[in-house]
Write a protein that binds this DNA or RNA. Structure first.
Ligand SMILES: [Mn+2]
Ligand SMILES: [Mn+2]
Ligand SMILES: [Zn+2]
Ligand SMILES: [Zn+2]
Lengths: 142, 142
DNA sequence: GAGATAATTAGAATTATTCCAAGATTTTAC
DNA sequence: GTAAAATCTTGGAATAATTCTAATTATCTC
């Protein structure tokens, strides 16, 4: 089942930015919410085609861009790899597993980002802080 | 004057990795040390041509890659922009000024990176932490 | 100095993304 | 309700940064 819960908030956010809710935007967003593994645009494209077989890759890029601008999704970059997309709106860092290529969310204790920001010298006004870890993650005992 | 001081350490580092010191590698490195504004490969190319007019862009990419592998230079990425190169070996963060496009080094108090690493859950073993600020930097009173 | 090894080079290829212009859909105005 | 306006989607072309390839040049070993 598609999470209809989010339909309302998506429509609202889009409207706030003067944009329309479309089936393409809804399915792209729903795909991100359903499997939160930080997919690339290509991966989103493949997943969305399950529901909308005629969608184009250009539209997937457009939808992702729109969702990012509405602050419903974060774009995440590792080196020069393809951009990945994350619907987790809580402040968090990313752990890039160099063995598997997988990306993990790392919850941050409240205040940590401010603490990090506090190392900035006078005159530097940051409106975002990004923290990226790179290393090996133990395979969860399954 | 080219900083000859570093010639020795460059040659040594290259030798440690089984590579040779070449005029191209030396000038690329010297260009990075001389103006530490986090130039892109294209910008390095333009600067190096002053001393080695016949160098190719491919060689600049090769040299930069080599310097990064020898741990003499860090590659820095902001979103999907072109990779920038930084010869500052001290642990530091980067501040990306969205107005000017300029990149500033932010020195980090000792222990901060470890403190940030300590938020990682068990099983996550990070061998690098990257911190990127984005915002506006006050123009230094000149 | 000959042969082996490593590095540089020009240009082609690659990859992710953006641009474009045309057509489809939705909204607004009457 | 329809026509015009605005917004979206689409396929394909274009772009930008980087990597690859194969040939040449330079360096090192003997
Ligand atoms: Mn990316
Ligand atoms: Mn980059
Ligand atoms: Zn995330
Ligand atoms: Zn730096």
């Amino acid at each position: 089942m598609r999470p209809t819960i989010h339909h309302e908030s998506l429509t609202q956010r889009l409207a706030d930015s003067g944009m329309r809710a479309t089936p393409q935007r809804e399915v792209v967003y729903s795909v991100l919410l359903t499997k939160r593994d930080h997919p690339t645009a290509d991966e989103v494209f493949a997943r969305v085609k399950g529901e909308l077989p005629t969608i184009s890759l250009a539209t997937v890029y457009n939808c992702l861009e729109t969702l990012v601008q509405c602050d419903l999704v974060r774009a995440v970059n590792f080196e020069r790899g393809p951009t990945r997309y994350c619907p987790n709106l809580a402040p968090h860092a990313h752990f890039h597993d160099v063995q598997t290529g997988r990306t993990h969310d790392v919850e941050l204790p409240p205040g940590l980002l401010d603490q990090v920001k506090s190392v900035l010298p006078a005159g530097f006004d940051a409106n975002s802080v990004e923290i990226i870890f790179r290393g090996k993650a133990a395979t969860p005992t399954s």
